[in-house]
Amino acid sequence: MPPARYNAREVARRVGRLTDEYDEVTVVTEREEPDREFAELRRHAEDGYIGGAYCWTTRHDERGSECRDADTGDDRRRVLLGMGRDRDSWCPPGGGLEGYDPADPGSGETFEETAIRRVREETGIECRLTECVFVHWAVVEDPSSEDEVHMAYVVFDATYRDGSVAIEPAELNGAAWFADLPPNLHYFAQRRAAGW
């Protein structure tokens, strides 16, 4: 029996659409060891898990009213970052796609719909996507066979539209607007921060 490549076609189709629709998307494909039992990861893939989407959301009001600190006059551009419940690093808010059925290719949310929804749910912030900047295509290999699970994690640039930070405690330990980036950045934030 040939090795199984869970979600490989769907991830390829979705990543291909992103690279066709957006300018200069960086796609990094990495082979990874499973961080949990491969059988559990395979079950998630069979149930429709194909990855997640995240927003590097910035805000800067040229009039100074949205970002200006009343005491210091600081009106620098800021980025919204969150610290997940299971992390000790800051990351762009986001999370997993919903509604994908492996028996129905193309079903469920797009990466764009997921990114906007997750930022709203996790932080209370409404944002507008401006660009797709980074795709992490993870190929997780079963250590006891040649089976693989494919997942894509997409980072979008976005701009602030409305709202105040109000975290979803079940998802985040905290969220804040940063003018100066904290030292403990998640991998996705490190990748995006390099060009910010």
Rank of each mutant, 00 (worst) to 15 (best):
V27F: 10
E113W: 05
T58P: 03
G64R: 09
E21P: 08
R120C: 11
D20R: 10
Y54S: 06
Y22T: 05
T57S: 03
G96V: 14
W90A: 00
I125M: 08
E21C: 13
T19S: 07
D88T: 12
A103D: 13
R63S: 02
D101F: 15
S89T: 13
Y54T: 04
V119I: 13
V27P: 04
R36D: 04
D35G: 11
L41P: 03
W90Y: 13
R36K: 11
D104F: 04
D86R: 12
E32K: 00
Y49G: 07
R43E: 13
G99A: 09
R43F: 00
H60R: 06
D86G: 06
F38E: 06
T57P: 01
E46R: 12
V27M: 15
F111S: 01
G94T: 05
R120A: 15
R77P: 04
Y54F: 15
E24Q: 10
E121R: 10
C91L: 12
E121S: 12
D23R: 12
W90I: 01
G96R: 15
E109Q: 15
R87F: 15
E66Y: 08
D23N: 13
C91K: 00
D74F: 06
D61Q: 08
F38W: 04
L18W: 03
A39N: 00
L41M: 05
G95K: 05
V119P: 02
A115N: 03
F111M: 04
G108A: 13
E40S: 08
G51F: 05
G108M: 07
Y54G: 03
E24K: 12
G52R: 00
T110I: 09
R87Y: 13
R63A: 01
E37K: 11
A115K: 01
Y100H: 07
E37Q: 08
E33R: 13
G106K: 05
I50E: 03
I116Y: 01
D69S: 07
D35S: 13
Y49Q: 14
W56K: 02
R43D: 10
E46V: 14
